[in-house]
Write a protein that binds this DNA or RNA. Structure first.
Lengths: 179, 179
DNA sequence: ACTGTGCATTCATCTAGATGAAGAAATTGC
DNA sequence: GCAATTTCTTCATCTAGATGAATGCACAGT
């Protein structure tokens, strides 16, 4: 299986860019068709709700792709902010360049499989949000992204899980005390 | 743009089957690689949590595809139940038959786009669950699936939204009274 | 036609998690 | 190195939504 990075190099004039921690790659409202492949570093995407609260949609460490798929696919202005949690090296690429008709077939198939896997993960995320209590969502997060807790502040994990930093702190206290 | 149904006919020995309301197409724990295209009728997928409560992951009316992508993609036993909410006519098809390497390229591209759109919708679903109060999730549901409320009982909408039937009833009461 | 089952509503109570404030520890910037 | 900002925790309150129970309705099946 070919690495996404190599595929990207083949199919697009590779626009690699470096960003500093805290730099913003995309704002809410932006008209965009770009996604970002993270070569090095760590990005996140999030929304800010009507009360001004942040909710993190996803983290993207090395090897991940991040973007506002809803906005890209339905030609809406972006709902998501995307910014850097660490100094990062990023490959930017365009809307449907992963599925352009003039690409070799095997690459398109490869790209589809990547999409498909990601959908599997998204399904799990929805199910967890629908049905699991905060503590279960937290332990599942730890299992799935074991290295992230060392790289991001706790309050960001909280807003990824859909709870407040205080609630997460309480949960962690309980877990620690119970063993 | 070609209809998914036509594509399916081309790429797979079309296994069309009829199911009665309440018939179960897939149980939790099943080893499966099948997805279902709904030609006529209405399916749903859902999980049952540790307390025995149902949570509906999605509805699939005519033209939709439904399946347990996480299970299929990661070779796990199914987490989702799938059953019929109306008498239905369904095309069953296998795991990666949408992306088999011997398919014409344009069909693979077409199938990828379908996936991509679906991911956009899933993103919205996650964001709503993360950040929007129940009443907003409900009104968004009504806007997105205007015909579903006439075809399914209210308590199913509730478990799709991640709340109890009683809570939805209260919300509806408030909406009705406020206008 | 009646009987049971499923469905929606309402109410009284309970609880997970939100909110807001305050303090201590750790990081960051200059 | 020191001030300023972030981060994490704890606590006292508050609230959206859960739970459980009761009622009335609308059917579906025999």
């Amino acid at each position: 299986m070919e690495k996404i990075e190599d595929i990207l190099k083949k199919i697009t004039p590779t626009k690699t860019k470096n960003f500093k921690k805290r730099e913003v790659l995309q704002q809410k409202g932006a008209i965009t068709t770009q996604s970002f492949y993270v070569k090095k570093g760590l990005l996140r995407s999030y929304i800010i709700d009507s009360k001004g609260k942040e909710h993190i949609y996803m983290f993207a460490p090395e090897g991940w792709i991040i973007g506002d798929i809803e906005a890209i696919e339905f030609d809406e202005p972006a709902a998501l902010y995307i910014d850097c949690l660490e100094d990062s090296e990023v490959i930017m690429f365009d809307k449907d360049c992963l599925f352009k008709a003039d690409l070799p077939k095997d690459i398109i198939v490869e790209n589809s499989k990547i999409l498909y896997r990601r959908m599997g993960k998204l399904q799990r995320r929805v199910l967890m949000l629908l049905s699991a209590p905060a503590i279960d969502r937290y332990t599942y997060f730890l299992k799935t992204y074991p290295d992230l807790p060392h790289r991001i502040p706790q309050h960001m994990i909280a807003t990824y899980l859909g709870i407040t930093p205080q609630a997460l702190s309480t949960i962690r206290g309980k877990i620690a005390r119970s063993k």
